[in-house]
Design a protein around this nucleic acid. Structure first.
Lengths: 330, 330
DNA sequence: TTGAAAGCGCTACCAC
DNA sequence: GTGGTAGCGCTTTCAA
């Protein structure tokens, strides 16, 4: 491995000069600059990032934490994050939390030890204690899955998304409802609120997979979907709203397996509008989040924070509009 | 940020002792060890990775390079790689090459500058020059997508996979064939070889999306699939073999759009057997790679290389058996 | 405009 | 067992 010292010796200048040339800081004569660059090219030199990080306290590294890499939503957003990060000279460390808070803490701790310049985090459900910690520790953080007071975030309003689905189901004349996912999710709050506001009785709204929903998720929800659908009374048309697309797919398949007609007997709407929605038959209705935009904005927000030396300014919240994309399952 | 110096001062020992305790190296009295650990816990101390990397020349970081994060195959394998890496105390830097060789070079260069302990790389098509470079540079590397002389690798034999599909098509009495993907792909070689061995005329075998197949990939192949299927003579039943699953899906949808019956008029087989195969209707036939195993083995292989101080030993090639999973599209 | 030199936080060697 | 100390490769004052 070559070092700046080598370049300096070969180019006949001091190491400081090499550093100045490479960092693009002003105050180097064109002649010396050219000489340095010549050797940099000749040796295909690249400065050691660890040394740079140690000395400059800036790693050009961002950490991304997601609860489930297999969920196409997170895979897609990771792809966009990586693209924009790379474009700005940043590398991305990816960590999968599997929706486990303990693991999330460990990850964040280790990312800090790596001196990452910032963290982008997607949560699968609201986790106040963790976010509270994140706020205390002064790591620059942007959440791309939900809102939280005192932390930068970007995303759609899940509550509004839930409300959209409720309105849609009501307009279709549906009278029984189920939500697949954690009851504390904002999506469910918006869903339920709207239904109750429209005069629906509470006993017509059910939550499935509440506590252990994450475990249920891991096999894509098929099993618990079958369990639920086979136990439910189907004399009333059922409207099922799912916390995400893979899980919604599980419901559709469960319905098919039980010979229930979709959407005539069971209407299904997912969340995220990932590309799988179009890749399945029947095509899946879903609440759309502008994934690419969210990924881009999250990176931009974080880099802006990194640039401003003082972390004085108030947090930024960017809320985009969710949209219900109606397809064949609802 | 606290440092080892702080811990040392508080615990009343030298910095060397703190270092020894934290690295678990022998030769520290239990009493002092306990005292150090007490302060480590109290301050929630975590050593600075950059400093460690710089001093020990070991980053506990591995780089993963994939051509397309949106392809479920790579998303899945990344998930497994991350899991096993984390289990062994490694973090993962993920980079998306978009199938571009220039970008791949840049990525590798920057990963080396980051002092990664090793690189796992998945390629979308054979790229001899790049791999040759990789061999020259002594970065520990494992390929998880294909075989290459002189570099460790793990995966299924794509050639065998292609042969399996050819045999299957022949057994179904199919007489016209197409391969969607780059002609230089081993999958195609095995496919074509087997067909020709069985007496099929060369003009009955076509390659679609050869040169610009990657671009085609990016919108999941639907457009060029429609283009191809609408131009082809359909009086003979067609067997289409695709380089991966998303692309195969494009063909199925194109066929549906053109009112061609799948699999009666057009049989389709994908590659990788990602979970989308089961999530679509008709369910997609595909050549299966044991994704989880490949991810695990790739990490294990790399860590073994890292452990052996000398990089003397010959390369390892692990070839797993591909399997044709027949479903509704063939 | 340039170079010398003092760190950044840690590891590892050497001496006690 | 333990502590002192010389780097690891870079950035960034400070003087010249």
């Amino acid at each position: 491995m070559k070092t700046m010292k080598d370049i300096a010796r070969l180019a006949g200048v001091s190491q400081s000069t090499v550093s100045r040339v490479l960092s693009g800081s002003a105050g180097v004569s064109p002649a010396r600059k050219a000489k340095v660059m010549e050797w940099v090219r000749k040796l295909d030199f690249e400065p050691n990032f660890s040394a740079q990080t140690l000395a400059a306290k800036r790693s050009l590294l961002i950490g991304v934490v997601v609860p489930d890499l297999m969920n196409p939503y997170f895979a897609e957003i990771l792809a966009h994050i990586e693209k924009h990060a790379a474009r700005n000279g940043y590398n991305v460390i990816i960590s999968n939390s599997a929706g486990d808070q303990k693991r999330e803490r460990e990850i964040i701790k280790s990312l800090k030890a790596r001196q990452v310049d910032g963290i982008l985090i997607g949560l699968s459900s609201p986790e106040a204690p963790l976010l509270e910690e994140l706020k205390e520790q002064k790591v620059r953080t942007v959440i791309f899955s939900q809102e939280y007071d005192g932390i930068d975030c970007v995303g759609v309003s899940h509550k509004k998304g839930g409300a959209l689905v409720a309105k849609h189901f009501l307009a279709e004349g549906i009278e029984r409802f189920a939500f697949f996912g954690p009851a504390k999710d904002d999506k469910y709050l918006g869903f339920r609120e709207t239904l109750i506001g429209a005069g629906i009785q509470k006993d017509k709204i059910e939550v499935i997979g509440n506590e252990d929903w994450w475990l249920t998720m891991l096999d894509r929800g098929l099993k618990s979907a079958i369990e639920y659908l086979s136990s439910v009374n189907t004399d009333l048309k059922l409207g099922v709203f799912s916390v995400n697309d893979p899980f919604a797919l599980g419901i559709v398949h469960a319905a098919q397996e039980l010979n229930l007609k979709v959407p005539e007997e069971v209407a299904v709407v997912g969340f995220d509008d990932t590309f799988v929605c179009l890749n399945v038959r029947p095509t899946l209705s879903s609440v759309s989040q502008p994934i690419e935009e969210i990924g881009r904005l999250a990176v931009e927000m974080l880099l802006k924070r990194i640039d401003e030396s003082e972390s004085n300014s108030k947090e930024n919240h960017i809320l985009l509009e969710p949209k219900l994309i109606r397809r064949e399952t609802s």
